[in-house]
Computed example of a mutant assay.
Amino acid sequence: MQICSVCSDQTPKYRCPVCKIRYCSLGCYKRHKDTCLPVEQPTPSVPEVKDAVSTEPWTVEDLLYEDDIIDKVPLQRLQLLGQSKELRDLLCNPHLRQLLRSVDSADHKDDAMKAAMQEPLFVEFSDQCLKIVENEAKSLTSTEAEYL
């Protein structure tokens, strides 16, 4: 089990988009960001396209680093997000919808995420998403957990 790289106390829920350390809360992120140093990662190898007609579509795994795959959430658990009344209620807020659009359309998504994480509403949204996904993982039977 991992612990927060900032406070060394709680289980981390988030990963710094710049240096990839794990942290547990907004407070830890704020303490960390002053000393954050970017980690240089090798450029991911993108599959070569030999001929446009016969190529298979890329998968997410083709574009992710090995560390990123560890954080991948199975589709079954992601689908629970669409069934959450709490999440739908949060998404009724036009300010949150605008924040999500700005992160999605940003050229530098890591900077946009840093800015969004300063907004308590965005943090509440992120926490709710994690709660939905993580609570489902805790309630799985052992057979279902093995499948994931």
Rank of each mutant, 00 (worst) to 15 (best):
residue 108 H to I: 15
residue 107 D to N: 04
residue 108 H to K: 09
residue 37 L to D: 02
residue 99 L to A: 11
residue 79 Q to P: 03
residue 114 K to W: 12
residue 128 Q to V: 13
residue 51 D to Q: 08
residue 91 L to G: 05
residue 70 I to M: 01
residue 122 F to S: 11
residue 52 A to P: 05
residue 47 P to Q: 13
residue 134 E to P: 00
residue 67 D to R: 03
residue 95 H to C: 03
residue 66 E to R: 00
residue 85 K to M: 07
residue 67 D to S: 09
residue 96 L to P: 14
residue 145 A to R: 01
residue 36 C to W: 15
residue 51 D to W: 08
residue 60 V to W: 13
residue 90 L to E: 13
residue 95 H to P: 09
residue 115 A to I: 10
residue 147 Y to R: 03
residue 136 E to G: 02
residue 124 E to V: 07
residue 23 Y to I: 03
residue 41 Q to G: 02
residue 27 G to K: 14
residue 22 R to C: 09
residue 105 S to W: 08
residue 102 S to R: 04
residue 69 I to K: 08
residue 48 E to P: 00
residue 53 V to Q: 09
residue 50 K to C: 08
residue 116 A to F: 15
residue 66 E to L: 01
residue 27 G to H: 15
residue 82 G to K: 06
residue 66 E to M: 00
residue 142 S to P: 01
residue 131 K to Y: 15
residue 54 S to H: 09
residue 67 D to G: 02
residue 72 K to A: 07
residue 107 D to Q: 02
residue 115 A to K: 11
residue 11 T to P: 00
residue 36 C to P: 05
residue 73 V to F: 11
residue 117 M to K: 03
residue 5 S to K: 08
residue 128 Q to S: 02
residue 95 H to G: 01
residue 133 V to G: 00
residue 141 T to S: 12
residue 139 S to C: 09
residue 58 W to Q: 12
residue 42 P to A: 07
residue 145 A to W: 08
residue 55 T to I: 15
residue 19 C to E: 13
residue 91 L to I: 15
residue 139 S to Q: 06
residue 116 A to I: 09
residue 24 C to H: 00
residue 68 D to F: 12
residue 52 A to S: 12
residue 25 S to H: 06
residue 76 Q to I: 10
residue 148 L to T: 06
residue 18 V to Q: 14
residue 58 W to Y: 12
residue 27 G to C: 12
residue 32 H to F: 12
residue 92 C to N: 11
residue 25 S to A: 10
residue 43 T to E: 07
residue 117 M to W: 05
residue 137 A to Q: 11
residue 114 K to L: 13
residue 123 V to D: 06
residue 65 Y to D: 06
residue 79 Q to W: 05
residue 51 D to A: 02
residue 57 P to H: 14
residue 139 S to P: 03
residue 125 F to D: 01
residue 60 V to K: 06
residue 12 P to T: 08
residue 18 V to A: 12
residue 68 D to K: 00
residue 145 A to M: 06
residue 102 S to D: 15
residue 70 I to Q: 03
residue 111 D to K: 03
residue 103 V to R: 07
residue 96 L to D: 14
residue 59 T to C: 12
residue 13 K to V: 14
residue 105 S to Q: 09
residue 31 R to G: 07
residue 120 P to H: 13
residue 17 P to F: 07
residue 89 D to M: 07
residue 145 A to Q: 00
residue 37 L to Y: 04
residue 124 E to R: 11
residue 19 C to Y: 14
residue 110 D to V: 09
residue 12 P to E: 10
residue 135 N to H: 11
residue 79 Q to A: 04
residue 23 Y to S: 01
residue 18 V to N: 04
residue 51 D to H: 05
residue 16 C to Q: 13
residue 61 E to W: 05
residue 52 A to F: 15
residue 80 L to H: 05
residue 118 Q to Y: 09
residue 77 R to P: 02
residue 66 E to P: 00
residue 95 H to E: 14
residue 1 M to A: 13
residue 93 N to W: 02
residue 128 Q to G: 01
residue 64 L to E: 14
residue 141 T to K: 07
residue 112 A to R: 13
residue 122 F to I: 06
residue 129 C to F: 11
residue 43 T to M: 03
residue 58 W to G: 02
